[in-house]
Design a protein around this nucleic acid. Structure first.
Lengths: 147, 147
DNA sequence: CAATATTCATTCGTGCACTAATGATTAGCC
DNA sequence: GGCTAATCATTAGTGCACGAATGAATATTG
């Protein structure tokens, strides 16, 4: 009878460790862009659509506004975004790309290829893993919403 | 032509978001045990073998000593472990379970089942995802060791 | 055996990430 | 129109997580 508490049988351990380790692969790749990994994800969200509110970005990335608030200030002081209250609703904050922020996209386009090459994994397997993770994310989000 | 920077195509996003969201599922389950998720992983490592040094635990969990040092102090003040210099090598620190720490294992045995039930996912798919993540972890660790 | 290098844990500084509390603004309702 | 409730971002507080620097102890090497 296998031990259900064995470390190498835990999904949560494989998940947490893989997440940290893959982010570590991104670190030297993103450093020349002046971005951390969470900042990179925010930029991906803004390259898809800008301006967006803090809440909207949080919904896309599954991050709390409390997490984004200081992060966005750092992106602002890096000159990649602007932060300004929405005219139609003074509670909300419009986060918008600057020219510099838009320009950064060209450099970022090389990132995914570099990561895949560094990992040295089959692209097909990588995409299957991503889809499995997306299903897991949905299941976990449903569970968290139920509580 | 699909956009390679689209958020929902990024493995790193699915990975990071799933990791955070699954840990959020653990939170209410671990709270009655007085443990955070990283603390839970350290306890798993110690239930497999005790005493262990900081470095040894770090190697098992892929965590830096700088991360573990304060975490272990918190586990010590919770009364679950003891911290003492090794006699054979005064540089190293022996981390050892207390009676209270050993006893906690009984309660922890219910955790994996609760999580799987809450996620409501097929156990077989979950194990396949775990194995895919383990391969990804190894690939990322190899890449990080190469730099 | 003595100088040097390595190893181990810790501390410091920075940056997430979450919960709970706060304050400002808007929406809903009588 | 004014009360109440909901919504939005921010702040405070706690706990990871990492790189770099530190200091103590052990290995290694000339």
């Amino acid at each position: 009878m296998p031990d259900p508490l064995a470390l190498d049988r835990q999904v949560c351990f494989a998940l947490a460790a893989a997440s940290r380790s893959v982010i570590a692969v991104y670190r030297p790749v993103l450093a020349p862009l002046g971005l951390t990994h969470p900042q990179y994800l925010v930029m991906l969200a803004l390259w898809e659509r800008s301006p967006r509110t803090v809440r909207d970005i949080g919904a896309a990335l599954w991050l709390e506004p409390a997490t984004l608030s200081p992060l966005l200030k750092r992106l602002e002081s890096s000159g990649l975004i602007t932060r300004a209250r929405k005219h139609s609703d003074e509670r909300a904050l419009d986060v918008e790309l600057t020219d510099s922020g838009r320009k950064l996209r060209a450099k970022a386009e090389a990132v995914p290829g570099q990561i895949v090459a560094t990992l040295g994994l089959d692209l097909k397997e990588l995409e299957e893993t991503r889809d499995a993770l997306t299903r897991l994310l949905q299941a976990a989000n449903s569970a968290n919403a139920r509580d």
